[in-house]
Amino acid sequence: MVSLLDIIGPVMVGPSSSHTAGACRIGLLVRGLVGGTPEKARIELHGSFARTGEGHGTDKALAGGLLGFRPDDERLRDALDIMEREGLDYQFEKTTLADDSHPNTCRLTVERAGQTTTVIGSSLGAGRIRLSEIDGYPVELTGHLPTIVLVAADQPGSVARIAGILAEKRVNLATMRLTRKERGGDAFMVIECDEPPGDIAREAIDDLDWVKWVRTLDKVGG
């Protein structure tokens, strides 16, 4: 659902809502997936991101997002310098992803505290974004709302159990999507919430022995 404030906004550092603000938001979501600033990142740029990213500051914006800067943060201009000063190893390269990829797409492989995650994200225009793949799982993650992501063993009742925990912690669910690579394999859950779920809800989910990992992501849009 498109919001009025997606259109009149974001307030952002120029020059491009898709190549700068959208790229920054992709970086912010990926940062959330590993729970903080990644130490290493391999950033592959596809399509228009590859062809015109440099002049739009797409590299600065993606790095800035990984560093935790929001789209209206003027430090984005200096994100590559800050990255170097902090001793972070972020490498940029051009690539060609699947033919049906959105023109503004990138693949990020990031490492933090021993965790590695690979994410495909696209910038859809007007600063709106979508992560379409996380570690091989097809997902749809927009960062429009506070979001819980988790990987769990595929077993009956898992959705109900998690929904129950969130209800108990008075977190209202907006959407919930479950994807898996194969029957009986692990399931990837993306749960968008109306309000930030908070540490207590996250810890309660993390305590379930069939949940392999869980992260809560702040909203990055709107």
Binding site: I7, I8, G9, P10, V11, M12, V13, G14, P15, S16, S17, S18, T20, A21, G57, D72, E74, L76, R77, G125, A126, G127
Partner: peptide
């Protein structure tokens, strides 16, 4: 001109048309 200089603007609807 502010946008092209990586200044702060409101994307409305995008930065290129701001």
């Amino acid at each position: 001109e502010v946008n092209a200089a990586m200044g702060v603007i409101v994307a409305a609807p995008t930065a290129g048309g701001a």
